[in-house]
Design a protein around this nucleic acid. Structure first.
Length: 418
RNA sequence: GGAGGGAUGACUGAGUGGCCGAAAGUGCUCGCCUGCUAAGCGAGUAGGGGGUGUAAAGCCUCCUCGAGGGUUCAAAUCCCUCUCCCUCCGCCA
């Protein structure tokens, strides 16, 4: 959630919001609603002050004065009760509007939409050739992915992952998790079913509600990323400054309805309803969050680069940022069969946007401040496999295991089935 | 799933209708003191919102004792619902 005070008083803050895609007039509506709310608040508080004072006097009053004073206090109570609903309505209205307002884009974020991200660097070179089979055909040929049976069992975009592909998954998890522990991350296997308030406070409801699977009879929701439960880990906490940064590496299965993606990426396991992912989530002091963001990016680059995948780093444009992100980097990897770069990982700095709803704060010399939260993909397994299926595929159809994974797979080469 | 007990500030813990935003202790901050020390002495120390203020400070005010609702002139305290924790019984990967 945004800072209404800053929206009211800081031009740059407002400008950062306007650089994202915001409905015309929304910001003025929020400000007007907030003005109305504060006016009512002043009025109601004045009445409450009178009522409190009147009540206090009754306690000290002599028995014979009491009945008169109680009657007077009762009248004040009624006057107050007449105005309170208006204030409550105003608060609901401000909140509903404020929730629609995205986090301002950082000044370093380029102008524009989806295709206007700024390519910061290109690392590694596509060799210009495509493998004999694209990732989907290869995975089927190697008997690693069975999408047909997956669809029979659970519907489209579900698949069975099998054989060496599963060993590759666990090798990836082992290798990446080891790296993250080296970098000071605490590994976490979080709950993947959460309550509604967790979804709300993590910023996924109401905006992305249609992307989330729910279990109505238990009033629980399946998470689409471990970012959700990790953000709830310090809900309402007032943290000591010397505990920050808190770095967590969440491993979870993730569930996404992928509403609105009909017909997109329909082959293989590029886009599926269920996948496993290692996610980085960091709580940082406000003055350290930009540095922490660069750190997360560097880790992502070392993972993607370590797998030998050619990639580029994109500074995502304002119009393409999600609502909570002030800035975001994507790592896009070359996908030979499509002849273009596709997103593999990303990392965002939410600044204090998410922490405001979570009420996660840090005690500093000056007082208390909202923490900054950041998140980044360490390794999204299915999609990583997609890229490996093409880049590690050799002309004879065998699969060359990336060197960094060899210690965890116990084999270097996988031959196609006879 | 059944029965009972509990949730208070950074932490421990007192408080069963007004004198309580809250005793005491711990911790922390500042000062003093002992030749040194994890010792002693003194003072301060909850969070959040609104208003005022050029800003900081200050001042006024409201809200918050797990969450939400209710009773009452008045609620940490009484009632209801929910969440969580503990103990016992049952069941179980």
């Amino acid at each position: 959630m945004i800072d209404l005070k800053r929206l009211r008083g800081e031009h740059a803050y407002r400008r950062g919001i306007e650089r994202k895609r915001v409905r015309d007039g929304l910001l003025d509506e929020v400000l007007a609603a907030d003005d109305a709310r504060r006016e009512l608040l002043t009025e109601v508080e004045e009445l409450r002050a009178q009522q409190n004072a009147a009540s206090k006097e009754i306690g000290k009053a002599s028995p014979e004065d009491r009945s008169v004073k109680i009657a007077a206090a009762g009248a004040l109570k009624e006057a107050l009760a007449a105005r309170e609903p208006a204030l409550a309505d105003a608060e609901v209205r401000v909140r509903a509007l404020a929730l629609q307002v995205p986090n301002p884009a950082d000044v370093s974020v380029p102008e524009g939409g989806e295709d206007e991200g700024e390519v910061l660097r290109v690392v590694g070179k596509p060799n210009g050739e495509s493998p004999a089979l694209d990732h989907a055909a290869y995975a089927t040929a190697m008997r690693w992915v069975d999408g047909e049976r997956g669809a029979e069992a659970s519907g489209s975009r579900f698949a069975y992952l099998m054989g060496e592909a599963v060993l590759l998954e666990f090798a990836l998890v082992q290798w990446v998790l080891g790296r993250l522990v080296e970098e000071g991350f605490t590994p976490v296997v979080p709950p993947v079913l959460v309550r509604e308030h967790v979804m709300e406070e993590a910023g996924f409801f109401p905006t992305d509600r249609n992307q989330v699977y729910d279990l109505p009879s238990d009033e629980l929701f399946l998470v689409g990323t471990s970012e959700v439960p990790l953000s709830a880990l310090h809900r309402g906490d007032l943290l000591a400054a010397d505990r920050l940064p808190l770095r967590y590496a969440g491993w979870s299965t993730n569930f996404r309805r992928e509403a609105g993606t009909y017909g997109k990426d329909t082959t293989g396991i590029f886009r599926v309803h269920q996948f496993d992912k290692l996610e980085m989530f960091v709580y940082a002091t406000p003055d350290a969050s930009d540095e922490e963001h660069e750190r997360i990016l560097a880790i992502e680059e070392s993972i993607v680069g370590g797998l030998g995948l050619p990639y580029r780093v994109v500074n995502i444009a304002a119009g393409d940022l999600g609502a909570p992100a002030a800035r975001k980097y994507d790592l896009e990897v070359w996908l030979p069969s499509e002849g273009r770069y596709r997103e593999l990982t990303s990392c965002s700095n939410y600044r204090e946007f998410s922490a405001r709803r979570l009420r996660t704060r840090v005690r500093t010399e000056g007082g208390t401040e909202l923490v900054h939260t950041l998140n980044g993909t360490a390794c999204a397994i299915s999609r990583t496999l997609v890229f490996l299926f093409e880049h590690c595929q050799r002309p004879d159809g065998s699969f060359a295991v990336p060197e960094v994974l060899m210690p965890f797979t116990g084999f270097n080469l996988i031959r196609p089935p006879a």
